[in-house]
């Protein structure tokens, strides 16, 4: 029994929607402008979030705070909907 959950399990779990990491600064700027919001206002996702950890493993590098995560949810009201979260370090 391993101490971690297999990243594929996490990413494919039925409760987990599709997460995509966006680290390119320009891309992030573009998205923020299009949405008309500032980064601090967006909801957060922690660096120790199991999905972030799993994605880090797949990418082979650490995902730093400040990156954006694009989440595609199945919505019972709108069909599909895209939301964003900002990667932050968890508070103590």
């Amino acid at each position: 029994m391993s101490e971690r959950l297999d990243p594929d399990v996490v990413l494919n779990h039925e409760l987990v929607p599709k997460h995509e990491v966006i680290e390119d600064e320009e891309e992030i700027e573009r998205i923020l402008e299009e949405l008309g919001v500032s980064k601090d206002d967006l909801p957060r996702i922690h660096t120790n979030d199991p999905v972030i950890v799993a994605l880090s493993e797949k990418l082979g590098r650490k995902i730093r705070p400040g990156a954006l995560v694009r989440i595609e949810r199945e919505s019972p009201t709108a069909g599909k909907v895209v939301v964003y979260r900002v990667v932050t370090s968890p508070p103590e």
Partner: peptide, 10 residues
């Protein structure tokens, strides 16, 4: 804790 915030929300 195990599957992330989005899963938690759902």
């Amino acid at each position: 804790v195990l599957l992330g915030i989005e899963a938690g929300r759902n």
